[in-house]
Simulated scan of single mutants.
Amino acid sequence: MTLKVVPINTITATRRKILLAAYRCAAEKGFTKLDVDEIVQRAGVSRKILYSYFNGLENLLTELGASGIYWPTTEELLSNAPSRYPDLPPEEQIGAFFTALRRTLETRPDTLKLLAWEMVERTPLSEILEDIRVRTALEFYEHLKQDVPDDVDLPAAVALLGGGISYLAVRSLTSKSYGGVSLQEEIGWERMEQAMHKMLRGLLFPCAK
């Protein structure tokens, strides 16, 4: 099947209604129960209209992932990073990515619900959205201006930090705190961000004073 992805600035009102309906249905029902009939009912359109815009659920989820509705674009993440981001040392650049990601996810509770569904349901549809997240992270890291030491396994470090932050963000939907640190107050996240920066500096520059 050939997938078509329409740039975000060309999304029509009807197309956006369908994307939002799919987003909310998936957040409520998960991936295995995601159903075209429920999407069209929520969007207030016919199946014929949905299929005229999207060639099935796979294409619909692909465009949802690229639209900026489900996952922040690289541009949105950079807009939430410090203006001097290109000149920051690498550990601060990586930390800025995760801080920007956490802040943008706060505005997307349905995305957090979808991340929770991914923990118990892994399907071709969930993999589409996972690929979008990986691609966005890679695009963001293309802006890194400094190299990290050769002996540092940066992908493993990023996976560990990303997994931790995603999990805690999901937990914040139902839990006030985790390990005694607040998940629903900014002071708790600031504490974790400070700890993250220290861990990154220790990983990348263990001999630095």
Rank of each mutant, 00 (worst) to 15 (best):
L101K: 12
L61Q: 01
E190V: 07
P109N: 04
A81H: 07
T74G: 04
G180Y: 07
E193P: 00
L57V: 04
M192F: 01
I18N: 04
R191G: 03
G44S: 02
Q93I: 09
A81F: 08
R84L: 04
V120W: 10
M1N: 06
Q146E: 15
N9R: 13
V148I: 15
T2V: 11
E106K: 14
L61K: 03
N55C: 06
G164I: 02
V45I: 14
I18W: 02
L200G: 05
D110V: 11
R201W: 06
Q93D: 06
A27I: 13
G164K: 04
E58R: 07
T111K: 07
Y178A: 13
P82C: 10
S182A: 15
I94Q: 02
A116D: 12
N9L: 13
E38W: 11
E63H: 06
L160P: 01
K176H: 11
W189G: 01
A66V: 00
T2N: 08
N9I: 07
K145D: 12
L78D: 01
P206K: 04
F31A: 03
L129P: 00
P89K: 05
P155G: 09
R103S: 09
F140S: 00
L161I: 15
R171C: 11
L112W: 06
A100D: 08
L204W: 08
T32L: 10
L34I: 10
G162P: 01
N59C: 15
A66P: 02
V36E: 12
K209D: 06
A96P: 05
D131S: 11
V6S: 13
D37I: 08
D147I: 10
G95A: 14
Y53R: 09
I49E: 13
K33H: 14
A159T: 12
S172R: 07
T111N: 08
Q184K: 12
Q194V: 10
